[in-house]
Nucleic acid binder design. Sequence first.
RNA 1: GCGAGCGUAGCCAAGCGGUUAAGGCAGUGGAUUGUGAUUCCACCAUUCGCGGGUUCGAUCCCCGUCGUUCGCCCCA
Length: 432
Amino acid sequence: MSSIQAIRGTRDILPSESPLWAKIEEVARNALASYAYREIRTPVFEKTELFARGIGEATDAVGKEMYSFEDRGGRSIALRPEITAGLVRAFIQNKLFALGGVQRLWHLGPAFRYERPQAGRQRQFHQLDVEILGSRDARADVEIIAIATQILNTLGLKALSLDLNSVGSSADRQAYRDALVAYFTPYKDELDTDSQDRLTRNPLRILDSKDKRTQEIVVDAPSLLDYLSDDSQRHFDAVQRLLTNIGIDFSINPRLVRGLDYYTHTAFEIQSSDLGAQATVCGGGRYDGLVNQLGGPQTPAIGFGMGIERLIILLEQMGRYSTTPELDIYLISRGEKAELASAKLANTLRQSGYSVEVDLSGSAFGKQFKRAGRSGAVVGLILGDAEADAEKVQLKWLASGEQSELSQADLLSQAADLQAKIAQVRNQTSVA
RNA sequence: GCGAGCGUAGCCAAGCGGUUAAGGCAGUGGAUUGUGAUUCCACCAUUCGCGGGUUCGAUCCCCGUCGUUCGCCCCA
């Protein structure tokens, strides 16, 4: 086998799956429109420096997993490992802050990380990224969480849990970090090797360790919540109050630490128990310092990323969405005159708003009927030379087998009636 | 990057050292040159992910490699 394979960790989205993608996009678009968010589209690659400065050189996403390379002009380029940094760059470069007030933006597109592929984890994956820039109000935090929740609910996803935490201001976090290092250092030799490494690199992540002994040590570690400043605490309290107010359930998880450096204050994750090790469907948080750090004016912001492939896994498990195309008419014809007539008829029908598939095989009627049945069409139109001569057509309801003859002119003049009937039949069969 | 499992047709698979690699679903052609989920017939893998080794002989054993799955790490 010498045929060329797709790159490791990438996948083709086949026609059998693309209706699910379309469904997710449609639900997301509607939800976002209802919250007055506007779409922005940014390049899939950027200067490596953007990610190094924005996300943090020490993070795994940048330090270990980024696709970076030199282009032919000697520039250091990277495929984006996430969407927020590029979006913030665009916000600054295009001076969207000059529009004043609050900017609500979203973008759906691919991102890339060089990781070991696993279920729910690919090297090219897709994220819906939603951001609100320019507000430090707790209502902005809650709005962001509410959008994520609404999209997931509308898709019909169940058994999701929302974890909430505050990582405080960068000053709070620095103080906490120092306290953690002080606490863990005496136990250094007892920690698992990953955590020993994290002690210098990212001590907050030790809290998440799955190692048993490490977890025993973690139990008595200082809590981040004790290191929040009064302002941070007030903000966190407000977020909780507002979430409760609009009926969104959550649980506080003081060990929820997000892996990207730019997060401040609110951090949240929505997880599913049906995804194995890659349980996070949606993760996000506040990043009040990022815009300024990337050269823009001081602009508080919060947003989330939602993993589309992981949603697809969950939707496929539910098996709720049909993946067959919605086809109105399958056009069967045989004989030279009939084929000519059917081509013309098909075009006219399409202009009237029908979706029409024409059988091109020229094979026996029996075969064509078989394909008609499989096509998912509601109606079969049959044109032989006899019908072509008489300018008639046989109309067959494929589900019931009911068939009648009518003139082509009548068929076209009754387009609206027929369309309504097709819609009705389709609803009946899909409910059953 | 680390550990483990798996890899036979479009899909689901049996074979586990010995002549032509079961079977099912799907597909294609025909019985049926004007009516479709029935029935019958035929066709559908010179080869078992790829490369090397052991052997008189390898789908089967060994090594490597690629892919995939699960866990770690990380995260969406």
